[in-house]
Nucleic acid binder design. Sequence first.
DNA 1: CTGAAAGCGCTAACAC
DNA 2: GTGTTAGCGCTTTCAG
Lengths: 374, 374
Amino acid sequence: MAPRSRRRGAGPPNIYDVAKLAKVSTATVSAVVNGQDKVEAGTRRRVQAAVKKLHYEPNLYASNLARGRTKLLGLIVSDVVNPFFSEIAQCIRQEAQTRNYEIALSSTQFSRADLVASVRRMIGLRVAGVAIMTTERSEQAVHLLRHYRLPAIFEDVGTVSHTISNVRIDYEGGIFRAVKYLVDLGHRRILFVRSYPTVSSEGTHFLSIRLRTQAFERAVLHFKPEGVQAFKVTCPGPGPKAGFQAMGEALSRYEFTAAIAIADPVALGALRYLQQRGYSVPRDISLVGFDNSYLCDYLTPSLTSVNIPRDKLGRMVVEQLVRQVEEQAPGAALPLETELIVRESATRPPSKRLNRIRTSGAVSGKRKAGDRSK
Amino acid sequence: MAPRSRRRGAGPPNIYDVAKLAKVSTATVSAVVNGQDKVEAGTRRRVQAAVKKLHYEPNLYASNLARGRTKLLGLIVSDVVNPFFSEIAQCIRQEAQTRNYEIALSSTQFSRADLVASVRRMIGLRVAGVAIMTTERSEQAVHLLRHYRLPAIFEDVGTVSHTISNVRIDYEGGIFRAVKYLVDLGHRRILFVRSYPTVSSEGTHFLSIRLRTQAFERAVLHFKPEGVQAFKVTCPGPGPKAGFQAMGEALSRYEFTAAIAIADPVALGALRYLQQRGYSVPRDISLVGFDNSYLCDYLTPSLTSVNIPRDKLGRMVVEQLVRQVEEQAPGAALPLETELIVRESATRPPSKRLNRIRTSGAVSGKRKAGDRSK
DNA sequence: CTGAAAGCGCTAACAC
DNA sequence: GTGTTAGCGCTTTCAG
């Protein structure tokens, strides 16, 4: 069969066009394009000239198909708009880049069905490995991964196997330190603001939420001797809106002097509710967030929050994944510590009863700027 | 040549494996997998069973290569972590999904080199069309697109051609309304807080920034008869940090009663600076943002901001791109209106001279805020 | 309705 | 060094 050349008059130029123009074989073009050094300088220059002249861009599908393997890592997160996830994605991408891997990103909107679909897509993409940093989880997804023996790494899922790792974020320690910090300041009535990303499913499948909640409960138990009491509210939605509503509900039901939010966006909403109702944070109520997102520094008051070191997480995830891919390293459990970042939003509790403050709280007009309360 | 079957013992199952198991040809498998209806129910069931049994996932590279065209739209933004861009990406993705297109997302970190690289990648991916929603721009990228006759749509770039569209966001109107709003409230000394995403390049290539700045200048000119004076500060960086610094600089240099920030994250930083220094917003200084990001509602005071309707933008972009792809529609200029969303952060200027307020400003307790400077 | 087979554009042995 | 060529896994006419 004569070396096909094509040029049906349309379509982007292919490797044959370049080869013909440079008067070399496609193998040589391929070698040049892929930066191999076994090509003579003169030949190389000719090829490069042809590439430039034709504006040749290799067809990635053909290339990946022929290669039979990819330098691609899949990354699945719950919501790219959420800063927590987008910051993680950013860190992982960066780390992958230094190791010469590309990242295929997929977002699930907290849906388990989307998680499975995303895993499918990653398999279709023949990724070398996949990191699943989602709040929701799915047995089916794990099953698929296992069947394909695809190196994978989860956030918070308990199962470590030969091909599956997971990073264990120390929620327990972080929450404990937050509670301890509040208790040490003198707080005894502490609220936990929890929120599920979706209305359905009762949150059973949102492991990190369950873990954080349990951690809170355990911490409270630990401080029971000092007379600590705990309250909890839950609202659907992952963001500020949920936090806003949740705080509204909490104020109408409980009396507390401090609150811990399960995530910073939730804290943001809670803070807004408090300030809008005329409460001063932290004077009337102390507030602690979780995740230490970039927002914390720029709120007033700046938000005390539990930090999850994203850069370290990114490094760990990519490193471990690459080890699994390239050295057939078995799955492992990777601990990741957390720490409390103290800012302005928590202080000692007010001496007066909260109730008093609440009922006489919302004084000043809501008009413009509902603060300056009390 | 005998129909190859493979099974070298490893690797994911391919279409031959499925065909063999289902005792049909690969053509039939392909038809079933792609949801074509010209397959008999019984055959189909057999195929589906085989697919399930083998956990068959089609190799997307092979499929795209064979197909010769993709249902893929490229989307290039400047920074996925920035809510403005991630919200746009979200809207575009959603819209694309309803039209049965996938989105390949790429982020440039405001770098022109990365922009060109991203366009290259999109071409390598053989996307059907590409939307370039970046702050920076690059002639070289435009050149490539034009050479490939690749349907494209830019944000804010002036050149409309046969294959290239652009959406024209009405910065002019938005800024004008913001300025007018402040002027009507009684402000006469207005600051514009601008920030470039990178230190280099003097911002020449950040069109939307230039457009917004020019719009501000023109609005001020329009209100010159009423005695309006304008000031400008610029800081490097796209986010709150830049806004924070910029406001610091502005306060040390100018006297003003209101400020317009070029983007909400910048406004956030500026707001924080003001509040940390003891200024009350809007009592002492009014502040207006730009983009109307989700944050605006949750800040205290909530932030008055110019809205760019993201959902509409997403719809327009995808619709136009699909028209260019499927009907060879020529490029077009798509106008997108903006509107001022009034919230709490702007009000009438204080009657006293600003200077006086500043020096005696930090009254209320800052307790554990390490500021109170000046 | 189903099967056979010719590519899609590129890579990687293997020869020269 | 460079060229030849057999696939990579799938889609898609075209026969039957």
